[in-house]
Design a protein around this nucleic acid. Sequence first.
DNA 1: AAATACAGATACCGATCTGTACACCTATAT
DNA 2: ATATAGGTGTACAGATCGGTATCTGTATTT
Lengths: 189, 189
Amino acid sequence: MRQTKRDELVRKALEIFYRNGFHATGMDMLVAETGISKTSMYKHFRTKEELILAALRLRDENFRNWLFRRIDELAETPRDKLLAIFDALGEWFAMREFRGCMFIKASAEYQEREHPIHAQSAEHKRLLFDHVKRICAQAGAPSPDDLARQLLILKEGAIVMAVLGKASDAARDARMAAESLLAAAFAGR
Amino acid sequence: MRQTKRDELVRKALEIFYRNGFHATGMDMLVAETGISKTSMYKHFRTKEELILAALRLRDENFRNWLFRRIDELAETPRDKLLAIFDALGEWFAMREFRGCMFIKASAEYQEREHPIHAQSAEHKRLLFDHVKRICAQAGAPSPDDLARQLLILKEGAIVMAVLGKASDAARDARMAAESLLAAAFAGR
DNA sequence: AAATACAGATACCGATCTGTACACCTATAT
DNA sequence: ATATAGGTGTACAGATCGGTATCTGTATTT
């Protein structure tokens, strides 16, 4: 397989960047931890930035697939799926390797909105929004747009508080808040 | 005044770290942008980390003072103050120099919970929580603890979405969500 | 006027940063 | 058998990293 080595590199780079940060991770550390030679790395990616972008693309795929598969497993109706978002988050927060949202961290290290890494992080959030909005619409929300944006705010806030507060609280609190938001959005239905 | 030079250093370092990130900002850049010699810097702070911690302490003071003064100006009753949090955030998001939450970014670059910079960022959130919880109690919330945690989640989420989405939406959406949370918390009063 | 203390400038330390050059290995395809 | 492609290892370039040493100037104290 021609893509195998490259995929392995991206997979491992993703894990190391996630654990260790972007600026704090040098190419030499990637060499040491992946066993892949620097020559090969620079054959696949012309710069460190391109490697980071590839890692973020993989992360975006993995995370969205996982989250939406998980909420489909956890809930039947669209409305329950919206709440299940926060049950899934709770499972994530409890994982040993949980370190917060990779895209929040990426945008924190690459702050200019025009920077490709920042832009790709914003795109990840947009894709999440699109999917959640679709579920809101399926649930019959009067304003799927508004509800989805509010739920996403809860999701991002829960992640931040899981990192900087108690992770177990964050998911439970966000779920309680989400229940209130749904109750308000569907008031009188 | 003996503290003047040191204070000026911390003030300017804060601004540069906020704009440019922590790892991405070298001491040489601080020398170039502040006009203060490296010798002086290392006379006041033994390491870069100590300088960062001093900058974060200043930021913590400034931000909390600003936020709580602003919501006192914007609202009269405790319950209205809770909503005014998000009006104040909206003003912040609209500022030209807005770049997200410095403590979220700090914890993104220094991920270990035991790291002093991470710990200090967590402490900032705890201090915010204490104050918001007090207002919740003054407002007569049945569970000030839960409500405060939910509102803080909204606050952090709004900041993230202000950075990675549309800043104007984020404050408005979070305020709408906060209204729903308050309605639920004070249901039947 | 002499002594002390502090700030600035500059050059430097060893380490590390991203990225490149070059020689060599090995499997497959022709 | 030999060309080709993808891989390794190593050494290195040039810049920058955090931090220090040294020297000069200057203000205050005695």
